[in-house]
Design a protein around this nucleic acid. Structure first.
Lengths: 112, 112
DNA sequence: CGAGATACCTTGACAGGTGATGTATCTCGT
DNA sequence: ACGAGATACATCACCTGTCAAGGTATCTCG
């Protein structure tokens, strides 16, 4: 991973919710998708991922169910709830604000 | 403060170095400047600020000296060192990458 | 049959941020 | 002269999110 998780810290939930806005998914897949979407530059560690799932489920932002009992290792799927959608839009807005502020603070070249 | 410190976490050092790239300054002033530059939306807590100063000084990225013994409360000024400048450019680049990746992860609307 | 991928989960340690608290000086209105 | 509030620095204990390490189980393919 080329960028440290600490730089993303605080935005993990937003990333996971963003994935679940597209479609129901499960841990392993979400992990791979994030790695791919980031061009291999960022990987959500498993421990972090499951911590986030737990937190989001407790908050009522996501719900889980076991995938088809068919073949292969069992998968726990997650769905986003209406409150989760709200949370997503809120977090997205916060990210927008964070960007603005950071740009201002890091690149402001005028002397105050 | 309208945005939580957790969203900025990990970028504190970059923000402080950015300030010191402009000119030598001291804690209280840096704090106020950040509050102003962010349009009152973000405030670096004092404890966070001094923790960061200590960290940056130990890393050799900044150096401190006591301001003129004149009137008023004593001020501890900080200067950025050459290694601090390097660190700043590095952190700035990291921020750029963080932005790219986050945008990709939060707003990517295509199904993979 | 064994290696490696798929898939889930927990625990303990660590690091950064922060509320609370403490010190001391200066300024300004009454 | 006095008190309130701004200026200015500093530390400690606590909280929270991240993550290395470890564990379990199944499937695939050579």
């Amino acid at each position: 991973m080329s960028i440290a998780g600490d730089l993303i810290r605080g935005h993990t939930d937003a990333i996971i919710l963003a994935r679940l806005m597209k479609e129901d998914s499960y841990g392993y897949e979400i992990n791979k998708t994030i790695l791919t979407l980031s061009g291999g530059r960022f990987e959500l560690k498993e421990a972090t991922l499951y911590t986030s799932f737990k937190r989001l489920e407790e908050l009522g932002h996501i719900q889980s169910y076991w995938g088809e009992g068919g073949t292969g290792a069992r998968r726990r799927y997650y769905t986003i709830t209406p409150s989760g959608r709200e949370a997503y839009y809120h977090l997205l807005a916060e990210w927008g604000e964070t960007k603005e502020i950071m740009n201002q603070l890091l690149e402001a070249n005028e002397t105050l």
